[in-house]
Amino acid sequence: MVRFVFGRALSLFGVLFCVVTATFFLVHLMPGGPFDRERKLPEQVEAQLRAKYRLDGPILAQYANYLGDLMHGDLRLSTKYRNRSVNEILADALPVSATLGGIAFALAVTAGVTFGSLAAAARQPWVDRAVMLLALVAICLPSFVIGPLLILLLSFTIPLLPVGGWGDARSLILPSITLAAPYAAYIARLTRASMLEVLGQDFVRTACAKGLSNFRVVCRHALRVGILPVVSYLGPLAANLLTGSIVVESIFSIPGAGGFFVNSVLNRDGFLLAGVVIVYCTLLVIFNLVVDLLYGLLDPRIVLYE
């Protein structure tokens, strides 16, 4: 077990090295530079800027230098948000995104699994139909439509909740619902499909024959196996949600990190992009590890390590 976790932690460094390398050279290859403006900068100014952000000299030397800085935990200065280091920017914005993402994560998983198993186990076909229709609607509408629709309904028509902003707990409700909705819908579909399969298996029949109630059969016996496909989806989901969503954050004006991913690509802000990518990949690897450990816990037949 310790060896397994340790091996995975080591592989994290391999993954990070690969993605940092890929990001660095991809940004270099993309047309346009970080200092391109409407009006072309005088040559000396641009040369000075390049020197300041250490983007001068041969590309391989730049890359080696950058790797050296990363080893010391220095993510460098952002070329877009002048004079602010990527470390500072991320330290400000990530906790905001992570809070919202954590709530949305919990919401998506609870709602998705509940509705999915309800749809699979319900005896009345209309429950299944209704839940699946709702899930499909949530998948078919982009979050920048769901968000404003919720605002229109719950902030303007019935003034219940604040439109946006960051600070008090009530302003978290609408954004976390908006953020969670498509993922909850996807999880509900996953759960339903896998539960339908599990509910047809022999051990479920046995459990029913023992005289257990439907609720107990579904929650104690079937769900434990049926939830496995959902669990394997949780790794990418957590990494996705915790690093923030540009769409939801811009609709509800939340000062999170979601915009950095997209804007750093558009601004050719390579160091900020690399910073976000590092955070994202670290989260992804960690959560995939947690998911694998959970797998072994839920289904003892799965052997992870010899």
Binding site: P125, D128, L196, R205
Partner: peptide
């Protein structure tokens, strides 16, 4: 109807 639960509609 093998079990209490139905198959895929």
């Amino acid at each position: 109807d093998r079990t209490r639960f139905r198959g895929l509609p």
